[in-house]
Amino acid sequence: MQAGGRLVVGIVIVLALSALLPPHLNGNWVHVLTLFFMMSSLAQAWNLIGGFTGYASFGNVTFFGTGAYACAYAMDAMRWPFWTAALFAVVVAAALAALLGWPILRLRGHYFAIATLSIAVGMQALVAQQEPFGKGSGMTLPINPNFHFFYWVMLGILIVSILLTAFIARSRFGYALVAIRENEEAAAVLGINAARAKVAAWAISAAITGAAGATFAYWNTFIDPPTVFDLNYNVLMIIMTLLGGAGTIVGPTIGSFILSAIGEYLGAQSISPWHTVVLGAIIVFIVILLPRGLMPYLTGGLRAFNLGALRAQLRASRV
């Protein structure tokens, strides 16, 4: 806990200082880092429902797309300024999560995964049919030529999401979420209103995701259903979180940093098939050899490496 606490403080300080960087960076680096902040925020948001609460959502990308479309609609059709539009997007995304979560969060395991997956796919198909949203051909937003603006907004969202996670992890609410993950029935008989806590966790997760989606829409100036409802975002949220350590405070950001760095090294700009093959191999590696993510190694150093424990754990998980 001590080492973990220092790590959180250290990362928040580094992130806060990186706000000073943009004037010294070329356009490409500003772009890369903005994207990194965005993916980290998405992973931090996923971690609240998937990592802390134990509900592996494949539908979080829905809130990214919803946030993007809500912002685009508010700015384009209603001529709202960005900040009002973004706030609107956050509210819409959180409300959608609460609405969907009430029935869906009663499902467990595979059924929850499928239900959220089908919401993600269904939402994309549904939005592609709506006239006010430009049907399948998408929407355009006003152009803001100041790309440093998006760097700062995404960074802000990330820092807020980390601080929020740290606050929740130490709060009464955070203990409810973890108790639900560990054993929902036991949580209920200790007085936890599991249904409400789960919905609240998903709504907060959706609010962060919606904020990132709204900012992405303005940044990209153009959105269409396949872009903002892209399931790959959802998968990346999960992989980044698992790589860093699910249910930890800054694990998702660390996982996102590593994956983004690898992606950059392999040339993330051109979506090459080899890039995806390597991503697949990394997932296989994480799932089999790093089920708890990197966090134990970051707080405990190489002492955390224990071949015997790893082998015992593998023995327990296979037949």
Partner: peptide, 23 residues
């Protein structure tokens, strides 16, 4: 619901124990 019964002052244990293993 169960959580409210607990708050009314009725607690139970489980025969198959249900600890929060990672806490």
């Amino acid at each position: 619901p169960a959580y409210r019964i607990t708050r009314l002052g009725v607690a139970r244990t489980f025969q198959v124990v249900k600890p929060f293993a990672n806490l």
